[in-house]
Write a protein that binds this DNA or RNA. Structure first.
Length: 853
RNA sequence: GCCGAUGUGGUGGAAUGGUAGACACAACGGACUUAAAAUCCGUUGGCCUUUGGGCCGUGCGGGUUCAAGUCCCGCCGUCGGUACCA
């Protein structure tokens, strides 16, 4: 219907024209230090979007939300005199392309390239000011080369225990450490661990990924496998502590803190039949209240401890646990279960014997897989103790008013021998000191974070630059990079936990008898460092040159060099944690100067369907950006996405809303143009080369001010409403000063670049005094404070806080004058009458409040 | 349970502790038109009204203040994340 109607302005004509203009003139190219046209005197601004996975279904309206925001900032910063780095690229490894290959037998690169081309076309149709010369795809051989190179840095590094920093393993070789010891210390290492194996995906998954794939209906089971791991745990403390220096949403910081899950406490050694069993606790001060011990069902000591009478029950219970999925085991409402082993442990602090149980509420994978249970002060232990009638001993006196059936907070130690009377904090210190002196335990910190399982058995990922010989692994020489996977006849997974690349015998088996590693890296590898590559995308000598790094990633007092990073929350713990980890390693090794990658992070809110539901194909509420561009133009789509509401908020789509901003752009168009009888666009006669009057100057300059401030604070919706106010005012004028229109076009340009450039060009032809060149190359206009000051202002007269009258007064009226005027107000008098005026509050320029009773 | 958001007209949303509802959408009325679309101009939180206005109103209950959507305390709802992590 809409396409049948006459367009309010010919966006389908000028939008592609301007896009072509920008492309041909390389308007938004950002030269590097040393390049032609580079101006070192300008400050830099790095605005980064989370690059998309180029899926087959193309862009959805969520993409342009964040992209438009960074685009507005980038265009604005350029006008403010910055060298702006605003790049785009493709996170193009991934499972869908591989599944397409499985179905068709076609190399996944072909499908990937098609999708990338479609994404690029769609993004270009929105007029984003990207420097397309810096475009990268993680699947480009040149990019793969450096991803593998960075892996080799990890492989050839270890973390020095004294400094906590990554260092080359060559230092260990020089010190004469054995190959075996060195291999155990590498940041990239091989381990036999229980991993998350998904038979239907044909690959293992990182802990961080398990939930996502499960929720998509795939099965994930645990099984022991030999895998490449990255030692992210060695960076746990820095990954937590350095969050403090970042300008990130508190929620995201908390998600990372929780994911890393640092908890400080103590390990305490108990003895069971002569065997030492260590437990981890964050509350060593409650040691006197431990009335039983629980081992994880998988705990290696269970066999030794279980008495003959209990052996059968224990075996039975372990079998049941093993068959349970993680979900069942950790499920919400599961009642506590467990079995007595028959064994007893000796509590080191009072030598008392406590029964040892096994129960699945204790996880083998965390702490030591064994706990001391203090039912009086732990809800889980309490529930368990009540069910199995185990004694409960209170050892912490809750502060008054906080008494609880199961008090888990801090209080005063009781029934605890030498700890009695101490605060929880002091008791912790004292008991840990005692344990350490008695060689019965030590202070420890535990983390939930596990090392990063880094290998995948898929085809469409970076092969590991590793060969095996005689059971030992070796990093291949840098000169052999990139190491690309050979094309296969058949991309189907084997169903066994064996990498698909193992099928390529000719590639795997080398002449010297060594064989290639057949695993590939996860998709995260490429996205861990793409923001670095953008800085120097065409460098074939290094992943980034020191000069480019120095300029674009200088933090200038900030922890991270990317000045603004906008993207969705879905990457809160995965990509953002991994990228920080790699960055820190490269920083330690001297390749980067900043400790963090992203200084300021903003999460755009999800765009819901028109029905308020999450957009999805099955609901049929997905909005296709191509359609919106077709009906209303790119400027309308950009403007609407910014006008919907605050960037970070979740908000529903509304086609009516798109029409609203489309009409606004139509009004801006008609400030300059009107249609004649034949329907041709002619310049409006009201446009004059005259000085604007006071009111016009006021609204225009107020707009310049507000739009600038609002862009700085990412409040794009209110910036747009101010521009609407401005254009509404200008539209009423019989004599419309062209300079005022030009200023509006200038501040609107970052939001709606096509229509504003088009109109400005038209004005330039008629009014020769306008500054030359296009809007993109002009400076952001300064506002004149004088125009904002009004001679007369309206102030409000309140009586007891309620508005009773409004007065128009001179802007210079003194407090005393205002008070006198307000007291004289007849409307206010009515409410004062009969009462005594107790107080008069005068807020100059705003109001007078008369307190009377 | 915990963590983080959030609650304002019919809707999306504005409001440095200082005139609640800017700007839009929808709706209604009018102009233009043979008609419609588009455009332009009005009205639009609720209740009462003698048409001057008045009263009520930002999830609920308290509090601080001359003044609270905004600050404090306690609840409730919604959304997102996360969870036997000892």
């Amino acid at each position: 219907m809409m396409s049948q109607r006459r367009k309010q302005f010919p966006f389908d004509d000028f939008e592609p024209r301007w896009q072509q203009h920008w492309e041909e003139n390389k308007t938004f190219s950002a030269p590097n230090p040393g390049d032609k046209g580079f101006d070192a005197s300008k400050p830099k601004f790095y605005a980064l979007d989370m690059f998309p996975y180029p899926s087959g279904s193309g862009l959805h309206v969520g993409h342009p939300e964040g992209y438009t925001a960074t685009d507005i900032i980038s265009r604005y910063k350029r006008m403010k005199g910055y060298n702006v780095l605003h790049p785009m690229g493709w996170d193009s490894f991934g499972l869908p392309a591989e599944q397409h290959a499985i179905k068709t037998g076609e190399h996944p690169r072909i499908n990937t390239e098609n999708n990338v081309n479609n994404f690029r076309r769609q993004l270009k149709s929105l007029g984003f000011a990207y420097d397309w010369d810096r475009e990268v795809a993680t699947t480009d051989p040149e990019y793969v080369k450096w991803t593998q190179w960075i892996f080799l840095q990890l492989y050839h590094s270890y973390v020095c225990e004294e400094t906590g920093k990554a260092r080359p393993v060559s230092e260990l070789e020089e010190k004469g450490f054995s190959r075996e010891v060195i291999d155990e210390k590498r940041l990239a290492f091989v381990a036999d661990t229980p991993v998350n194996w998904s038979p239907d995906l044909g690959t293992v998954l990182a802990n961080e990924e398990v939930e996502e794939w499960r929720s998509k209906g795939h099965t994930v089971e645990r099984r022991p496998l030999r895998q490449w791991m990255l030692r992210i745990t060695a960076f746990a403390d820095r990954l937590i502590d350095d969050l403090d220096d970042l300008d990130w949403p508190e929620g995201i910081k908390n998600l990372q803190r929780n994911w890393i899950g640092r908890s400080e406490g103590a390990e305490v050694d108990f003895t069971i039949a002569g065997e030492k069993v260590t437990v981890f606790t964050t509350r060593p001060d409650t040691l006197f209240g431990a009335t039983y011990m629980v081992l994880a069902p998988e705990h290696p000591l269970v066999d030794k401890i279980a008495t003959p009478e209990q052996k059968e029950a224990v075996e039975e219970y372990r079998k049941v646990c093993a068959s349970k999925s993680d979900l069942e085991r950790t499920g919400l409402a599961t009642e506590k279960t467990g079995v007595f082993t028959g064994g007893y442990a000796i509590n080191p602090v009072n030598k008392e014997e406590i029964p040892v149980w096994i129960a699945d509420y204790v996880m083998m994978g965390y702490g030591t897989g064994a706990i001391m249970a203090v039912p009086a002060h732990d809800e889980r232990d309490m529930e368990f103790a009540e069910k199995f009638e185990i004694p409960i001993i209170e050892v912490v006196q809750a502060p008054e008013g906080n008494e609880d059936n199961c008090f888990c907070g801090h209080g005063t130690a009781i029934n605890s021998g030498f700890l009695d009377g101490l605060s929880t904090a002091d008791a912790k210190e004292k008991i840990i000191d005692w344990l350490e002196k008695s060689y019965l335990g030590k202070r420890t910190t535990n983390y939930k974070l596990r090392d990063w399982l880094f290998s995948r058995q898929r085809y469409w990922g970076e092969p590991f630059p590793i060969v095996w010989k005689d059971g030992l692994h070796y990093g291949i020489d840098e000169s052999e990079l990139p190491l690309l996977a050979p094309p296969l006849e058949d991309y189907k997974p084997t169903g066994k936990p064996e990498a698909i690349l193992a099928k390529a015998k000719d590639w795997v088996e080398l002449e010297d008898g060594s064989i290639r590693e057949t695993n590939t890296m996860p998709q995260w590898a490429g996205s861990c460092w793409y923001y670095l590559r953008y800085c120097d995308a065409r460098n074939s000598e290094a992943f980034i040159s020191p000069e480019a790094e120095e300029y674009w990633l200088s933090g200038d007092g900030k922890a991270g060099g990317v000045d603004l990073y906008i993207g969705g929350t879905e990457h809160a713990v995965l990509h953002l944690l991994y990228a920080r980890f790699w960055h820190k390693v490269l920083n330690d090794l001297g390749y980067l100067k900043t400790p963090e990658p992203f200084h300021k992070l903003v999460n755009q809110g999800l765009i819901m369907g028109e029905d308020g539901q999450k957009m999805s194909k099955s609901r049929g509420n997905v909005v296709n950006p191509d359609e919106v561009v077709d009906l209303y133009g790119a400027d309308s789509l950009r403007l609407y996405e910014m006008f919907m509401g605050p960037l970070e908020q979740v908000k529903p789509w509304s086609m009516k809303g798109v029409e609203g901003v489309y009409r606004f752009l139509g009004r801006v168009w008609r400030l300059v143009y009107e249609a004649d009888q034949e329907g041709n666009w002619k310049m409006r006669e009201q446009l004059v080369d005259a000085k604007p009057d006071k009111a016009t100057n006021k609204v225009v300059h107020a707009t310049i001010k507000k739009v600038g401030e609002d862009i700085d604070s990412l409040s794009f919706n209110t910036a747009i409403s101010q521009m609407m106010v401005c254009s509404n005012e200008l539209g009423k004028l019989d004599k419309l000063p062209v300079s005022s229109v030009a200023l509006l076009l200038q501040v609107l340009n970052p939001f709606a670049p096509h229509i504003t450039e088009e109109l400005y060009q038209v004005l330039q032809k008629e009014f020769k005094d306008l500054p030359e060149g296009d809007l993109a190359s002009q400076d952001w206009p300064a506002y004149n404070e004088e125009y904002l000051i009004e001679d007369e202002i309206e102030i409000v007269v309140q009586v007891n806080g309620k508005v009773r009258d409004k007065l128009t007064v001179s802007k210079d009226a003194s407090k005393e004058e205002l008070e006198a005027l307000a007291l004289k107000s007849e409307k206010a008098q009515v409410f004062i009458e009969g009462n005594t005026v107790r107080k008069v509050i005068v807020v100059p320029g705003r109001l007078v409040n008369i307190v009377a009773n």
